[in-house]
Simulated scan of single mutants.
Amino acid sequence: MARPWISEQIQATVRQRAKGLCEYCHASEQWQYVQFTIDHIIPLAEGGSSDLNNLALACFHCNRRKGRYQDAIDPESGQTVALFNPRQDRWLDHFRWSDDCLRIMGMTPTGRATVAALALNRERILAIRAADYEIGRHPPLDDR
């Protein structure tokens, strides 16, 4: 299926609403080398649309890992649960930062499944978070 064109205005609205953060791993687009992508939370192939209520700002890695998935296995219970949905769920209800502020801890089945499925604590992002923490730009202000 061909991806529909998403206007610059809608992309700007998505970025502004997300405050420039990947809505999954909370990486800041400002400090990355690659512009973040616009994710269809419910994939087009699964009946999703390109309206603002189905769009989220996502770093390349989170968008690629999420792909067409809407659910994943909670590693604690083994149950299939919905992935985090930035338009329906509040990030702080499902996730918190570890004491050293480097790892995202899933606090609910949805949080744990999302952390595992999207590899929110992959080695590269941990190194980026550590460097950003040292100079005071991590964690994001609204997560503190």
Rank of each mutant, 00 (worst) to 15 (best):
M1T: 11
M1V: 14
M1F: 09
A2D: 15
A2T: 12
A2N: 09
R3C: 11
W5K: 15
I6V: 14
I6P: 02
I10P: 02
Q11W: 07
Q11A: 12
A12K: 10
V14L: 13
R15P: 02
Q16L: 10
Q16F: 11
Q16V: 15
Q16C: 10
R17P: 07
A18Q: 04
L21C: 09
C22N: 06
E23T: 02
Y24I: 04
C25D: 06
C25V: 06
A27Y: 01
S28N: 11
E29F: 02
E29T: 12
Q30K: 12
Q30M: 15
Q32F: 15
Y33V: 12
Y33S: 14
V34L: 14
Q35Y: 07
Q35N: 15
Q35E: 15
T37G: 10
H40D: 07
H40S: 06
I41Q: 01
I41R: 02
L44G: 13
L44A: 14
A45Q: 12
A45C: 13
G47W: 05
G48K: 04
G48Q: 07
D51E: 13
N54Y: 03
N54D: 14
N54P: 05
F60Q: 10
F60G: 10
H61C: 07
C62V: 06
N63W: 08
R64T: 13
K66A: 07
G67H: 08
R68T: 14
Y69M: 14
D71V: 04
I73C: 09
I73F: 08
P75Q: 12
E76N: 11
E76H: 11
G78S: 11
G78H: 13
T80W: 05
T80I: 08
T80F: 13
V81G: 06
L83N: 04
N85L: 03
R87H: 09
R87G: 11
Q88G: 14
Q88K: 05
Q88V: 14
W91C: 04
W91H: 06
L92E: 10
D93E: 06
D93N: 04
D93T: 03
F95K: 01
R96F: 05
W97C: 05
S98D: 05
D100K: 07
L102R: 09
R103A: 06
I104R: 00
I104C: 02
P109T: 10
T110H: 02
T110F: 02
G111W: 00
R112I: 09
A113P: 00
T114Q: 01
T114K: 00
V115C: 00
A117P: 00
A117Y: 01
L118H: 07
L118S: 00
A119E: 13
L120T: 02
L120W: 01
N121I: 08
R124H: 11
L126N: 12
A127F: 09
I128R: 08
R129E: 04
A131N: 15
A131V: 05
D132N: 06
Y133H: 10
Y133A: 08
E134S: 11
I135G: 05
G136V: 04
R137E: 11
H138Y: 03
H138F: 08
H138S: 09
P139A: 07
P140Y: 05
L141Y: 09
L141M: 12
D142V: 07
D142W: 02
D143W: 02
R144K: 11
